[in-house]
Amino acid sequence: MNTVFLLVALVATAGWITSTVTLRVQSLQHKADRMERRLALVLDHFGIEEPEPAGMDEVRAHLRADRHISAIKEYRRITGAGLAEAKLAVDALAAAEKV
């Protein structure tokens, strides 16, 4: 009986810790998103453009050769971006190159 009680207490504690950490991470993500939006407004206000990372010519070369996945991999290597972010950036770059 004591073992069952301890197991239930352990599971409840683990659930509480998980939910607390999840809420804290979500709060920090929300704050980071707000800071990024504010920084973007400041950069726009002063007319400052973020410089393009070095090595983007290689990404463009992959796109011109129709190697989209290789372009995403190269973008990730250059910038350290995650997969979703890299895919969006490379898709935007490909669309801009076609215009």
Rank of each mutant, 00 (worst) to 15 (best):
T13A: 02
Q29K: 12
Q29H: 13
W16P: 00
R34N: 13
H30N: 08
T20S: 08
V11D: 01
V11N: 01
W16A: 14
H30V: 12
H30L: 13
V21F: 02
M35H: 09
T22N: 10
V21A: 11
M35K: 14
E36R: 08
R38I: 11
K31G: 02
S27P: 03
S27M: 03
S19R: 14
K31Q: 13
V21G: 04
L10P: 00
T22M: 13
V11E: 02
K31T: 14
G15T: 00
T18Y: 05
A9V: 15
V11C: 03
A32V: 11
E36P: 05
A14W: 00
A32S: 14
V21N: 06
R34Y: 02
V25W: 01
T13C: 08
L28G: 03
A32R: 12
I17D: 01
T18R: 02
S19E: 05
W16R: 04
L10E: 07
L28R: 08
L23P: 00
R24F: 03
H30I: 14
H30M: 11
S19L: 06
Q26A: 06
L28Q: 11
G15R: 01
G15D: 01
A14K: 08
R37M: 10
A12L: 15
A32M: 12
K31L: 09
D33C: 06
R24N: 14
A32H: 13
A9T: 15
L10S: 12
R37K: 13
T13K: 00
A32G: 08
Q26C: 06
E36I: 07
Q26D: 10
R37G: 00
Q26M: 10
K31W: 06
R34Q: 12
L23I: 15
T22F: 04
T18K: 01
L10F: 15
L28T: 07
I17R: 03
T20G: 05
H30W: 15
S27H: 05
T22S: 12
A32Q: 11
K31N: 08
I17L: 05
R34S: 08
I17F: 04
G15K: 00
G15L: 02
S19T: 09
L23K: 11
I17S: 06
L23E: 05
E36G: 09
R37S: 07
R38C: 10
Q29L: 10
V21Q: 08
